[in-house]
Amino acid sequence: MALKATVHVMLKDGVLDPQGDAVRHALGTLGFSGVQAVRQGKVIELDLAATDRAAAEAEVRAMCERLLANTVIEKFSVTIA
């Protein structure tokens, strides 16, 4: 069965996220007062021809290192389903 990979890309801890902060501020404007922090990231879904989970995960992690994430400022996680 073909596999689906889901990649989450987030800014690394400690990297300022002005967009997340703007979202938090806008939520406060709408009356959602309990939001202490917002971090904004990306979700990337990939349909893979591969059928071997370990090989698929290794390949997607390589894709993250080379293109999908900028590891200077971003971290990523890979889920294979």
Partner: peptide, 17 residues
Amino acid sequence: LTEAGLLPGALMRNAGL
């Protein structure tokens, strides 16, 4: 050039958005 690794660092969204 930063994305290509020819220069260090990264350019992020302007702090004022």
